[in-house]
Design a protein around this nucleic acid. Sequence first.
DNA 1: AAATATTTTTAGATTAGACTAAATACTATG
DNA 2: CATAGTATTTAGTCTAATCTAAAAATATTT
Lengths: 217, 217
Amino acid sequence: MQTLSTEDYLKAIYHASQFTSSTVATTSIANKIGAKPSSVTDMFKKLSEQKLVKYEKYQGVSLTNEGVKTALRIVRKHRLWESFLVSHLNFNWDEVHQVAEQLEHIQSEKLTNELERFLDYPTHDPHGDPIPNRALFMKSYNKILLTELPLNKEAVCVGVKDNSSDFLRYLDRRQIGIGTPILVLHREDFDQSLHIQAGNSTLMITQKTAENIYIKP
Amino acid sequence: MQTLSTEDYLKAIYHASQFTSSTVATTSIANKIGAKPSSVTDMFKKLSEQKLVKYEKYQGVSLTNEGVKTALRIVRKHRLWESFLVSHLNFNWDEVHQVAEQLEHIQSEKLTNELERFLDYPTHDPHGDPIPNRALFMKSYNKILLTELPLNKEAVCVGVKDNSSDFLRYLDRRQIGIGTPILVLHREDFDQSLHIQAGNSTLMITQKTAENIYIKP
DNA sequence: AAATATTTTTAGATTAGACTAAATACTATG
DNA sequence: CATAGTATTTAGTCTAATCTAAAAATATTT
Ligand SMILES: [Mn+2]
Ligand SMILES: [Mn+2]
Ligand SMILES: [Mn+2]
Ligand SMILES: [Mn+2]
């Protein structure tokens, strides 16, 4: 049985390792968790004793199979709760993260599985991220960043890379959300900004915005 | 902002003070919480510093107004979650307590209030206990114990005093639940056992059972 | 009211999780 | 490849929440 804190570390390591093929560095976790590197080192040792990570001094960590499973169980709960908050409790997609951060630690298999059933086995959360099923398996779309979409090729927004409230509310104002059809009309060579058609409206977005939107062609 | 542990103490003090007019004793909380009396003394001091309880050495504690409010906010969440688990997630009334014990600590006013709306403003939890509304006000039935019901007077089960899984499942087997109509047919003077009509069936229950069932005449 | 029993508090220790400051190991640059 | 710079670890401290053992206060019984 894990504590709330070890669970957050495992999840952070899991997410960090999605973006690197090698091991996860101490400072990268320190930044994610909001703790000092020395605290992270301590935790790496604890997790290593529990065989949830492989840790060698100065070499960072990687999750063991058991560590991945534990992390996925948290991710599963996190995304199911986010889905619930949006679909039944009138939360907007930019408000759910902080609450799901707490709810993900509730220990009850029955609760998790019944919640999943109640939501009718959702496959993706409100941000387009895949939800691990009971067997911890998840199928992610073959998504690419909007920056990589060729001109005049039809695509649909299926997710966001930046989950910050600021970015999500910005997208709300631009009327871009999961499922919005997107077409790139023009790419400005000078600064890589894009003229796009999103739904019914035409608008301009910066490169920074484009590289935080996932689409499926 | 309270910690999980201080919240559990406040709730325990709140519940204990429902059964006594004087202050709440150290050992009674120690038993409820499952901690040693020395730990409880420590906590009493902490809560006293935060002005959530009035504490005098060797004299037990009583909640301040602020302490009562904090306790009621936890009770509100606990009972709303219990209701949700039973009404939407297929939990039986004997399974909800342990999970609600965790869920009651989730910090989000919006979550609590939206959950309440989603459940359509329930006034009582699955055990018949009243749910404080947003203003922390609750109206409890004018209930009495089944031991006090006169012979042949119509009544309805509205709650239970013992919330243990054992007792609740025992009632399930006897087909007694919240809302079940009850009539006392005969009271055995020898051991105070009762012959009752519960719903359609006639059955015998012990005094101990009867003094854990609340009814409204 | 004294003696005894029970309850409560104090003193001192432990553990998890965090921190700061200092030491050590890697890495990148010249 | 030496050295400066960065990342990481170690050493020592702190706080919250717990514990045990012993002391002190209160309650009960003779
Ligand atoms: Mn979390
Ligand atoms: Mn999400
Ligand atoms: Mn609790
Ligand atoms: Mn209840």
